[in-house]
Design a protein around this nucleic acid. Structure first.
Length: 374
DNA sequence: AGTAATACCTCA
DNA sequence: TGAGGTATTACT
């Protein structure tokens, strides 16, 4: 290892990267909101939940119910950072429901935040988070979709029929080719749901599922469950579950080279866009998400997000997409916890260390997350 | 497939 | 103008 890596001399070869138009959006402001949540409340909701319910709106009182689980955070293992990426490859899908078969429990099928096995009453947590988060997301939704002046709900419902449409409102996805035939007959569900604030999501759920079955829907949105059928089910999150015998492999280059009993074909494009949207929404820097959730570098994430290769073309890269996809399944607060814990506890120290090897004081080590709200 | 590093962009 | 963040690309 004589030559670690020849530093590409800062050759100012004018990189033609100005052809992309970024969608503007006051992020820093949102970051502040997020920062408050994660650092202030975010950190507190694990250690001092009562502080929240103390001065928040009464509706947060529901959170009291879920607060018990907040305690769980403190007691539970603080997230054993990221397992070897190959570890979570194909084993995160069994909903080993022990006691309550059809109930309202979601299992965080061990991975990023697998430490938290949350059992809660479906939308409770979501609702409470909705209140907490109400600061920032709305703003961005306006910025992001302001072109159409669509209310989140409207666009969301619209996406039921055209899942890509709402997403295409975001810069990077605006240039979507016409081949959105991959999947997502129903992906519109979570598609828009994830874009809505939690409270909206609840409303939507209620609207769609009625009051009696509302939680059922949410449960479906957040947890995976394979049907005994032998047809491929489009998961509401951009993945298609395939029976071991019904393996297309001919669809628009998204064929699956599954193995074993189950092959989740993830619509990489869909996931990429979803992630992009979520990151934008919550002002989560790519670098943070990449490192904390994906255990990858910012550049990698950026590339994956912008140029997602079809699932069939992926090899080991599938793991990365699986993580993204998995993260999308998590409820808000769990996602945030993952983001925070993974880096805040210095769990992924190894990742950060490699950045520091430069030892050059002049560089704003943005990856060190020293200043990051996360 | 990913990392590292930097050019470039947007915002406060 | 500085800082934070993203896109791009050479290299492994």
């Amino acid at each position: 290892m004589s030559s670690p890596h020849a530093r590409p001399s800062p050759s100012p070869s004018s990189t033609p990267r100005n052809l992309v138009s970024h969608a503007p959006g006051g992020r820093t402001a949102m970051v502040s909101g997020m920062a408050s949540l994660l650092e202030g409340s975010g950190g507190d909701y694990r250690t001092d939940p009562s502080a929240l319910s103390g001065h928040l709106h009464s509706s947060i009182s529901m959170c009291e119910t879920g607060m018990s689980l907040s305690n769980t955070y403190t007691t539970l293992t603080p997230l054993q950072h990221l397992p070897p990426i190959s570890t979570v490859a194909d084993k995160f899908h069994h909903p080993h429901s022990h006691h309550h078969p059809a109930a309202h429990q979601r299992l965080s099928a061990g991975n990023v935040s697998g430490s938290f096995t949350l059992m809660r009453e479906d939308h409770r947590g979501l609702t409470s988070m909705g209140n907490l988060y109400s600061h920032y997301p709305k703003e961005i939704s306006v910025a992001g979709m302001g072109h159409g002046s669509l209310s989140p709900l409207s666009s969301g419902l619209g996406s039921l029929h055209n899942s890509q449409q709402s997403l295409s409102a975001y810069g990077p996805s605006a240039h979507l080719p016409t081949d959105t035939k991959m999947l997502s007959p129903v992906s519109g569900f979570e598609s828009h749901a994830s874009m809505l604030s939690r409270s909206d999501q609840e409303h939507l759920a209620r609207s769609l599922g009625g009051h009696g079955h509302g939680h059922g829907l949410i449960s479906n949105l957040n947890s995976m469950h394979h049907h005994p059928h032998s047809h491929l089910h489009s998961q509401p999150n951009g993945a298609v579950m395939m029976a071991d015998r019904e393996r297309p492999g001919h669809v628009a280059g998204q064929g699956v080279s599954g193995s074993g009993i189950q092959a989740e074909e993830i619509n990489t494009k869909e996931v990429a866009q979803r992630i992009t949207a979520e990151l934008k929404r919550y002002s989560i820097p790519q670098a943070i998400f990449a490192q904390r959730i994906l255990s990858r570098s910012q550049g990698t994430l950026s590339d994956l997000l912008r140029n997602p290769k079809p699932w069939s073309k992926l090899k080991s890269g599938r793991e990365t997409f699986r993580r993204m996809w998995k993260w999308l399944q998590e409820p808000e607060f769990q996602r945030m916890s993952a983001l925070r814990l993974a880096g805040g506890s210095g769990a992924t120290g190894a990742n950060k260390l490699r950045r520091q090897k430069r030892g050059d004081p002049g560089q704003p080590d943005q990856y060190a997350s020293s200043h990051s709200p996360f």
